[in-house]
Simulated assay, not measured.
Amino acid sequence: MNPEEFARGSWQDSGSAAALPPLEDLRARADRFRRRIVRRNWIEYAAGIVVVVLFAAVALFVPLPALRIGAALVIGGTCVVLWQLRRRGSPLSPMEHGGQLSVLDYQRRELVRQRDALDSIFTWYLLPLVPGMLVILASPLLSLPLAQWEWPPVDAQMAMAFPVFVFVLIYLLNKRAARQLQQQIDEIDALRAA
């Protein structure tokens, strides 16, 4: 074997791709991610129950009809959000058996599923709440005759802008989280290609 063949063989044997991590590390990482999803979902479910209870009180006890309708719409929207969270955001059941590649496939599938849920957050999480919030924000005007409508004062405009700010913040944070999950998907794809 001449020096050129030896160098070529050594270079090919060394491989430029990263080696697969140990199976225990892959499983631990998948389990941590799954627990994080479960914890996030339980927090969302608890928050949804609080929203339903609070807006049910508004719908039952506030005398303004528009505010009562808006509260009922928020309750309906919250129920849609919780159903969609269960449908889109619940973790897949963990794999019982399998080697490194099957754990990688499971983790990739879970990451793709969660990325897609976060990436489409506007349509299934924010949009169902918009009609109720719009009616609630407009309820002071809707309770007045049309001739008495006037532009709200600055403090009322700021109060109206706050839910919009929160919705935009939720949207942006979830888009950022979706991009982070995509990076993890890319890492798994690189490992699988190795």
Rank of each mutant, 00 (worst) to 15 (best):
L85K: 06
L85H: 07
R87K: 08
R88F: 07
G89V: 00
S90G: 05
P91D: 01
L92A: 05
L92Q: 08
L92R: 06
H97M: 10
G99S: 00
G99E: 01
Q100Y: 07
Q100E: 14
Q100V: 12
S102F: 09
V103P: 01
L104A: 01
L104V: 03
D105V: 06
D105Q: 11
D105S: 13
Y106C: 09
Q107C: 12
R108H: 10
R113H: 06
R113P: 05
Q114P: 03
Q114H: 06
R115Y: 00
R115L: 07
D116C: 05
D116G: 05
F122A: 14
F122L: 15
F122P: 02
F122N: 12
T123I: 13
T123D: 14
T123H: 15
W124T: 04
W124K: 00
W124I: 01
W124Y: 02
W124N: 01
P128G: 02
L129H: 01
G132V: 00
M133C: 14
I136E: 06
I136H: 01
L137D: 09
L137N: 12
L137V: 11
S139G: 06
L141M: 10
L141G: 11
L142Y: 01
P145E: 08
L146V: 13
L146K: 09
A147D: 11
A147I: 09
A147E: 12
A147F: 05
Q148K: 13
Q148A: 15
W149I: 04
E150H: 15
W151I: 08
W151P: 05
A156N: 11
A156L: 13
A156T: 14
Q157S: 09
M158P: 06
A159D: 10
M160F: 10
A161G: 08
F162S: 14
F162V: 15
F162N: 12
F162Y: 14
P163R: 04
P163L: 05
V164E: 06
V164T: 09
V164N: 10
V168L: 13
V168D: 07
V168P: 08
